[in-house]
Design a protein around this nucleic acid. Structure first.
Lengths: 252, 252
DNA sequence: GAAATAGTGTCTTTAAGACAGTATGTG
DNA sequence: CACATACTGTCTTAAAGACACTATTTC
């Protein structure tokens, strides 16, 4: 429920006609999107190399300014699609970063978002783009402590990141760890069908710690979020596991 | 760690000098604060009656525009103090509301915050102010479902609220319910020392459901967040309960 | 048939809920 | 001393962890 741009009470129409929105100096408002995936058992994120100042050459989250007639989530969706090609994924607002000096140009307040994509989907898109790169995260804290994270290349070397993006990525990790405990968000990082072991691997990668196999299975089956497909994986060199799908995907 | 306003690479200083921040139209950015307390076993919030358009006469959260050299939390703290007199309380960013039509004047993006205060402290302040009023909340959903809430007067009549404030208050309730499960945030709604029964009453009011007394006591004592004072309540007409304090208050 | 992981059954451990019984103020 | 609530101890129930054992595929 949002207030419509209609007069609410006597005299309001005249007031609105007189209102001058240009009388105060205003900050710019941007959105940034931390795109998380799990690759080879590790949380990873997709970054762009900045071609312009400030922080030229540093890696940065896909981001952009919010249009005057665009919602925040709409802006994040547009930025994500235009800068990475990723469409139709889980996307949620995270936190708003507004330190007065976070951008050297001028006051820019950034509404941080995070998105979740299965690695299979990302790698198909990555083949078409040469300006983006997927980096592993190194999280120097446990559980939901929070704080900045490191972004490393294949050799484990920390990368230079722009602005407050290490904090933004850290906030995304903190949030997804928290959500995992009570919501079936792990499905967003997997293809449509998946095995119990595959789902557990996602949870372990996100939480950064091993999970008891037996209780994980019991908990997932009891949650009602999983639905048997009757199908089984093949070509795996051992007894094939049953494939499940997210039970509410049809309902949503 | 936030980027300083210093050149990061060759050529950046020249770029910054040329940058013209006025070339794009920008939204206004405001902060709103949902001030929650527990009164007589019910979640309540403190509202101001709007004296100007838009939504003149409707009740609204304390709010105001963000200054150009002010952090978001700093703005929220300033707004809270100037409009309610409340200082030095728990205050945290909640969510940013940015629907293009949420304010009939112009595009105003609001960074919602929430604050927690013990009712004892609030009532002392309320005596000095006649433009603010404390209203009970009626939450039409369970657990952490989320969504707008109703604000009612002493007779239970729903009040007319300005803007998207019912959603903002709902978001605050959702957040505090979530935090209660893993963080000792309930202490923020109590005086410095309190009884086990008092703490349980706060939890029950926030969660909107009764809690098992025995396991609550066990859980709280095991958490390490409580510290015995050796003091006991008096004048209660029954065996007095021990007074505890929040164990980390000294450390913070 | 060996290797490897899937899946089942059961015992142990731990946390939550239930409840009886004792403790200690005020009136 | 009656009352009301604080606090303690123990039994029951439910969930998580541990682990042995069987099942089923590929090589």
């Amino acid at each position: 429920m949002v207030a419509a741009r209609d007069p609410q009470s006597p005299g309001e129409a005249e007031f609105l006609a007189d209102y001058d929105p240009s009388q105060f100096e205003r900050p710019s408002v941007a959105v940034d999107v931390t795109l998380l995936t799990v690759r080879d058992g590790r949380l990873s994120t997709w970054l762009l190399q900045r071609k312009q100042h400030p922080h030229r050459g540093a890696w940065s989250l896909p981001g952009g300014f919010v249009g005057m007639d665009e919602s925040l989530l709409g802006a994040a969706k547009r930025v994500l699609e235009s800068k990475t090609g990723v469409v139709d994924v889980f996307l949620e607002q995270l936190f708003t970063f507004g330190h007065p000096a976070r951008d050297p140009r001028t006051r820019i307040i950034s509404v941080a978002h995070f998105a979740l994509v299965a690695i299979e989907e990302l790698e198909a898109l990555a083949a078409e783009r040469d300006d983006v790169e997927l980096f592993d995260l190194e999280i120097p804290w446990e559980g939901q402590t929070g704080g900045a994270v490191d972004v490393v290349d294949a050799a484990g070397r920390p990368q230079r990141l722009a602005f407050d993006h290490p904090e933004q990525i850290g906030m995304a990790v903190k949030r997804i760890r928290g959500k995992l405990a009570y919501s079936p968000i792990g499905f967003q990082l997997l293809p449509h069908t998946f095995t119990m072991r595959g789902l557990q691997a996602i949870h372990e990668a996100v939480l950064g710690q091993p999970i008891n196999k037996d209780s994980f299975r019991r908990r997932m089956l009891a949650s009602g979020d999983l639905q048997s497909t009757g199908e089984y994986e093949t070509q795996v060199g051992h007894r094939p596991a049953e494939l499940y799908e997210f039970a509410r995907r049809a309902a949503v």
